[in-house]
Simulated assay, not measured.
Amino acid sequence: MTALSTLIALCPPPTVVPPAPDWSQVEGALSTGLPQDYKELITTYGPGQFCGFITLYQPHAPSDWADLNGPIPVRLRGQIEEVRQAARHPWQLPHSPDNLFAMGVTGNGDYLFWVTQTADTPDEWTVAVNEALRAPWFTYDGPLTEFLVNVLNGTTSVPMFPKDLLDHGPAFTPSTLESSTQSAAARTSVNTRTIRDWASANGHNLPERRRIPPEIIEAWKQENPS
């Protein structure tokens, strides 16, 4: 049984999905091949969220916030070292920024990356997860679909993911790219640590490993409109 068939049994995809992109065109624009499991995953599921939390970037998405071919993956790669050097006590990076290719985001501002040390063999790329480009980092030594299977069946626990991620069981919620990426953008356009610190200072009970409720984000935005 393949990882994709296991994922489908665990977390059924929608019955109707948008047409698959022209993968040769996508890879040509990126000047790199992409993992076969990712291409099959996007073709099978289309846009949406796993457990209402994990959004994968899609080729040629209408929003820059989740466009695999857009500016965000390149921008994030450039910001990783900037954020590290700006810290009072810079942390050790587990991977060179040159070997990180952003391909997903969560509702709490965690970024999902491919680790592309073997650039010419994308099927060997592994997965790294990071909170807002800061420490800590979590690395999964396997491909993306396998990572999703193990996260959604509870085998793999990602330290920065919320403890209640699977409280309602694994699920995939299809959405338009506009709605899913606008939600991700609203949550990740600012460091989530800033929101958590603000919430704590203003009397909001926000456990570390829980999702940041939308109303907390909106309250923060009201007080910090810039």
Rank of each mutant, 00 (worst) to 15 (best):
Y140H: 13
V16N: 07
E82V: 12
D120T: 13
A135Y: 07
R211A: 14
H89R: 09
D123V: 10
V127Y: 01
S175P: 03
G142C: 11
P170H: 09
S179T: 09
F138A: 13
I216R: 09
G70E: 06
Q79M: 13
N205P: 00
I216H: 06
H60Y: 14
S180F: 00
L76S: 08
P162L: 14
D123Y: 04
V127F: 03
R88V: 03
G169N: 06
P136S: 11
P136W: 09
E131I: 08
L10C: 07
W65R: 11
S24V: 06
D110Q: 12
Q36K: 07
Q79K: 12
L148H: 04
N99T: 05
P207N: 14
L4I: 14
V16Y: 00
P18F: 02
I42R: 04
T121C: 14
L177S: 15
F113Q: 01
F113S: 03
S189L: 06
A128C: 13
F172A: 12
T6E: 15
E82R: 13
K39R: 15
Y45C: 09
L7F: 03
S179W: 00
A171M: 10
S5V: 07
A9R: 14
N205Y: 10
Q117E: 15
M103A: 07
L56E: 01
S24Q: 13
L144H: 03
S180N: 11
I80T: 08
W137A: 13
H95M: 05
T2Y: 07
N224I: 02
W125P: 10
G70P: 05
V16E: 13
E218M: 06
D141K: 10
A102I: 02
A102M: 07
E223K: 09
P225R: 04
A201H: 05
G28S: 15
P143M: 05
K39D: 02
P213N: 10
T194M: 10
G104T: 02
N130D: 03
Q49R: 15
Q36A: 13
N108R: 12
A201F: 01
P21C: 04
H89D: 12
M160G: 00
N150R: 15
P159F: 15
A128V: 03
S179Q: 10
G169Y: 01
T2G: 11
Q58F: 06
Q182C: 09
S179P: 00
K39V: 01
P13T: 11
D110H: 05
R187F: 08
G154E: 10
D22G: 03
T155F: 03
P213R: 11
G142Y: 02
A219Y: 02
S189G: 10
W23F: 05
P47S: 14
Y45K: 08
K163D: 15
A199M: 07
D37W: 01
N224K: 04
A185N: 12
